[in-house]
């Protein structure tokens, strides 16, 4: 879309809307409420639904606990890749290069790496060298501790003592292609993203920043772009519970001047 940019009217890169799905044992967990879907636990059906609504990308977090369940991941990733034609990221428990390779082979476009990168920062570098920075998303879970932003790992259970801003800069230098920034203080609260954190991180790095944690309303997404300077927003509950469809959210944001990819009707070829 055309927006005013430095006094000039320019076509610009759209900001991205990214629904996030938690998967365990090949099933979407943390309830997704689409009344008309017969199986709301099937990652493929949900992925397809969001794809059709105009999602710009999808993120799947595999929160599988057992090794047995982990074997199902490749299977559903492959099926998702066959049914949607937008980029998607898979994260959760990725600790080795062969896991990354397997996920990319199955059709994932990117992987998100979190705890394993904190334990071994060289892993980001290795993954970026082997597969390109564009497929390495560094996920960082951040919590405010005594007026400082600290990195937490293992799904937020373990404190690392690392300063979040320094860690994110280090991750960029190691070759991460994007930052998925989750505010643990806001996650699940639906009171809005941590805009201060978001803005600090966005200004600190050259790579795109995806805001996560706290979205409960369209306005929160707008703030993340306007004040937080996010390049993309991740949201779960506002979409899962059917409060808004993705196209409603995009329309709202576009009306408020945020460049959005709105559907352009593609003419299907005559069969």
């Amino acid at each position: 879309m055309k927006v005013k940019y430095g006094g000039r009217s320019l076509l610009v890169l759209a900001r991205r809307i990214i629904p996030c799905l938690d998967v365990a044992g090949g099933r979407v967990v943390k309830g997704v409420h689409f009344l008309d879907l017969q199986d709301a636990g099937d990652p493929v059906l949900l992925a397809r639904r969001y794809y059709e609504e105009g999602a710009d990308e999808l993120v799947f977090l595999d929160i599988t606990a057992t090794v047995e369940e982990r074997k199902t991941v490749i299977d559903w990733v492959r099926r998702v890749a066959d049914s949607i034609f937008i980029p998607f990221t898979v994260g959760g428990g990725i600790t080795a290069l062969d896991q990354v390779q397997e996920l990319l082979r199955a059709g994932a476009d990117k992987v998100s790496i979190n705890s394993a990168a904190v334990r071994n920062p060289g892993f980001i570098d290795e993954a970026a060298r082997a597969f390109g920075s564009q497929c390495v998303v560094l996920a960082v879970d951040v919590k405010r501790v005594a007026a400082q932003w600290k990195v937490f790992v293992r799904g937020g259970r373990d404190k690392t003592g690392k300063d979040a801003l320094n860690w994110i800069r280090a991750g960029e230098d190691l070759g991460a292609g994007e930052i998925l920034l989750t505010s643990m203080d806001r996650d699940g609260t639906q009171v809005g993203y941590d805009l201060e954190l978001l803005e600090r991180v966005s200004q600190r790095v050259q790579i795109p920043v995806i805001a996560s944690g706290g979205a409960g309303d369209c306005r929160h997404l707008l703030e993340a772009f306007q004040q937080g300077k996010a390049d993309a927003v991740l949201a779960a509950s506002i979409f899962h519970y059917g409060r808004y469809t993705i196209s409603q959210v995009k329309k709202f944001l576009a009306e408020h001047g945020i460049p959005m990819r709105l559907e352009s009707p593609v003419v299907r070829p005559a069969v």
Binding site: L13, R15, R16
Partner: peptide, 13 residues
């Protein structure tokens, strides 16, 4: 002031 790489959806004219 633009981020590099360009990642995302852009118009093709």
């Amino acid at each position: 002031e633009f981020k590099v790489p360009q990642i995302g959806w852009n118009n093709v004219c």
